[in-house]
Every structure is written in C-alpha cells, then in structure tokens.
C-alpha cells in the first residue's frame, strides 16, 4: 500500500543528477525538473514531485543551499545552490556510479559464454 520506492532509479541516482545539474547553475525546483527531463531526452520518467523530498534530503546533508528570491517571471522561488561539500559528494558518487556501470556493462557484454 505504501511502497513508494517505485522509481526505476537506484537510490541516490536522483540526488546525483540534481547535484550535477546544480553544478552547472543554481536552479529552482521547477526549472530543475524541466532540465532533467529535457537533458535525459525523456528517457527517464520521473515524477516532478519526487524532486522535493530529494532536495530536502540534500538540504539536510548540507550538500545544497537554498535561498528565496524572485525569478525572472516575478515569481517567488527558492533557488538551490551547490555547496563545496556537495561538489565533493558529487565527485565521489559519480566515480562510484561509473565503476558500477562498467562492471555491469562487462557482465552484460555479449561474446562471453
């Protein structure tokens, strides 16, 4: 009834992608959602709302900072910015992910009997 872990993503993937996106530039929630959707070319189906719990977790871990400001469309939005700690965490996570990916790729490679 309550199983919310229905993302296809492994735990931490969303946070990783958020951090990566924010590394390029600080964004607010909606823009973040749009960016991930666009960049993944719709390959990833993510509920927009699921960003918010992830963002709160990142805030708690002090991997991002949040600041209220006014957006270009005169809207009151909360801009999220990557912190130094967040940048470091991102590096670690990315390298871990790439190693895992390589490993899986090798196992899945055709030709081995």
């Amino acid at each position: 009834m309550k199983n919310r872990e229905q993302r296809d993503l492994f735990p931490g993937a969303l946070e990783m992608m958020i951090l990566r996106t924010l590394k390029r530039q600080p964004l607010h929630g909606y823009a973040l959602a749009q960016h991930i959707k666009r960049t993944s070319k719709d390959l990833l189906q993510i509920e927009e709302g699921s960003l918010y719990p992830a963002l709160q977790r990142l805030l708690k871990e002090e991997l991002v900072k949040a600041v209220w400001s006014i957006s270009s469309t005169n809207r009151r939005v909360r801009i999220y910015k990557l912190t130094a700690k967040g940048a470091k965490h991102l590096e670690q996570e990315v390298s871990r992910f790439e190693r895992m990916l390589e490993g899986i790729t090798r196992v899945l490679a055709p030709g081995e009997s």
Binding site: E47, E48, G49, Y52, P53, L55, Q56, L59
Partner: peptide, 17 residues
C-alpha cells in the same frame, strides 16, 4: 498528475528532516 501525490510528497519531504 505529472507532479504526483502532493500530500505524500510534502510528507516525504518533511520526513527528510
């Protein structure tokens, strides 16, 4: 619909803290 269950998401977000 695209956003998801607002109440649940709010609760999950708060749960992080």
């Amino acid at each position: 619909r695209e956003f998801g269950n607002v109440t649940l998401i709010e609760e999950d977000s708060r749960a992080a803290w």
